[in-house]
Simulated assay, not measured.
Amino acid sequence: MRTTIGYTVESIGYVIAAQGLVGFASQTFFGTEWGWLHKLVDLPPAAHLAVLAAGLALVAAGVRTRKTPRHRQAA
């Protein structure tokens, strides 16, 4: 079960991080809006960096959960 949860959290983290990165890059370098996030909320570039950080935190949590060894109970 931990493996499934780890992969799921990690996958969601990648999507969130990508939206933060694309939103930041599009506003900062091109002056346009890319991605899906701008359709939900209007964020400044600094907030997109916070979304990127949150996504990377989810990725790290998913990897850590996935790599946690299972504890065996003594029989």
Rank of each mutant, 00 (worst) to 15 (best):
F24V: 02
L37K: 04
T8R: 07
E33D: 12
S11P: 01
V15E: 07
A74Y: 12
E33K: 14
T65V: 11
L52C: 08
V63L: 10
P69A: 11
T68C: 08
H48G: 04
R66A: 10
T4N: 10
S26F: 05
P44G: 14
Y14N: 11
A53G: 09
L40S: 11
V22W: 04
A46F: 14
R66D: 06
L56D: 01
T65D: 08
T28E: 12
A74D: 15
W34A: 09
G62H: 02
A25Q: 13
P44F: 08
L49D: 02
M1L: 11
R2E: 14
H38E: 03
A47W: 04
W34Q: 08
S26T: 08
H48I: 01
F29T: 02
R2M: 14
V15A: 15
V9F: 06
E10Y: 14
I5H: 07
A57N: 03
L56Y: 07
G13E: 06
V41I: 15
R72Q: 15
M1E: 12
L37G: 01
G20E: 01
G55N: 02
A74V: 15
V63Q: 06
G31Q: 14
K39Y: 11
A18I: 13
A18N: 06
L56M: 14
A74F: 12
A74W: 11
A61S: 13
A75W: 13
T28W: 10
Q73P: 03
T32D: 09
V22K: 00
L52A: 09
Q19T: 03
T3N: 12
R72K: 10
D42R: 11
A60C: 00
V15I: 15
A50P: 00
S11V: 07
A50K: 07
W34C: 04
A17N: 02
F24W: 09
A74Q: 13
F30S: 08
H38K: 01
Q27V: 05
A46L: 15
L49S: 07
A47H: 06
G20Q: 02
V9L: 15
I5E: 08
L21Q: 05
T4K: 12
P44D: 15
I12W: 07
L37Y: 01
P44C: 10
A25P: 03
V41C: 07
A50T: 11
F29H: 10
A75F: 12
T32S: 10
A46D: 11
A57Y: 00
G62Y: 04
W36G: 10
G6E: 08
S26R: 03
E10R: 10
A54E: 00
G35M: 00
A17W: 03
L40D: 01
L56I: 10
L56E: 08
V15Q: 09
L43V: 06
Q19K: 04
W36Y: 14
R64Q: 13
Y7S: 08
L21H: 04
A46C: 05
V51Q: 03
F29Q: 06
F24Y: 13
A54Y: 01
